[in-house]
């Protein structure tokens, strides 16, 4: 659109607090589909508050696109709050499972060392195969694939990303404000206005 150099895309972690409502996943997913944006990772889970769900969505986009999407999500009736953060602003983890033939591992001491180095632990050990698990960043779980590939990796799966926002003090106080008919200034659900730089100077 503009003549400036295109702004780099980067990974954003979108955190969505919602009511527990059938069809909401579709309503949120369609906001991405409609704009032809691929969801890299999506996780739904309970939150710190009973009855409130938390979505963690990862996309690779520019900040401008992410901010608009965040507002479109927040506009949905059952959505309480949306935050978006770069990877620097969150603590995040993904879990991965690796299935490898047991005989190879038993034979080669090297493999055991590699697994230890990569923080993997055995979940199931059977005569024919063993399942290892690691938790970490994408590079770490990816790395172990490379490590295990030469030793006959049978199956690999990685979970969606979960992320905790470093700067967040939770949602409890906010939720209480949401529950009031007349929220106080604390709720300021129009808080996105705060992040604008000194909006203009005369």
């Amino acid at each position: 659109m503009s003549e400036q150099a295109p702004i780099e895309k980067e990974e954003y972690n979108i955190t969505v607090y919602t009511e527990n409502h059938v069809g909401l996943l579709n309503r949120i997913a369609m906001i991405f589909t409609r704009r032809k944006i691929n969801i890299d990772s999506l996780n739904t889970s309970p939150s710190e508050i009973e009855g409130i769900h938390r979505f963690n969505i990862v996309i690779n986009e520019t900040e401008e696109v992410v901010s608009k999407i965040a507002r479109q999500i927040e506009k949905q009736v059952e959505v309480l709050k949306v935050y978006y953060n770069t990877n620097e602003d969150v603590i995040w983890q993904e879990m991965a499972l690796y299935k490898v033939p047991t005989d190879i591992i038993a034979e080669k001491a090297k493999v055991e060392r590699l697994l230890r180095e990569n923080g993997a632990r055995a979940v199931v050990i059977r005569k024919d195969y063993t399942v290892f698990e690691t938790t970490g960043h994408r590079e770490e779980t990816d790395n172990l694939i490379k490590v295990l590939q030469p030793f006959g990796l049978i199956e690999f799966v990685r979970s969606a990303r979960i992320a905790i926002i470093k700067g967040s003090d939770g949602f409890n106080r906010k939720l209480r404000e949401f529950e009031r008919d007349e929220p106080g200034q604390d709720a300021v659900e129009n808080e996105f206005l705060n992040s604008r730089d000194k909006v203009f100077s005369m």
Binding site: V77, V79, L80, L175, D181, Q185, E189, L193
Partner: peptide, 27 residues
């Protein structure tokens, strides 16, 4: 129904922005 906790149809008006808008219009 007049209240759904996850739905805020009427935003709180922020007076500082009204003031800034008026300042712009007046000048």
């Amino acid at each position: 129904c007049d209240h759904i906790r996850s739905y805020r149809p009427k935003p709180i008006v922020r007076p500082e922005y009204i003031a800034q808008a008026a300042e712009l219009i007046n000048s």
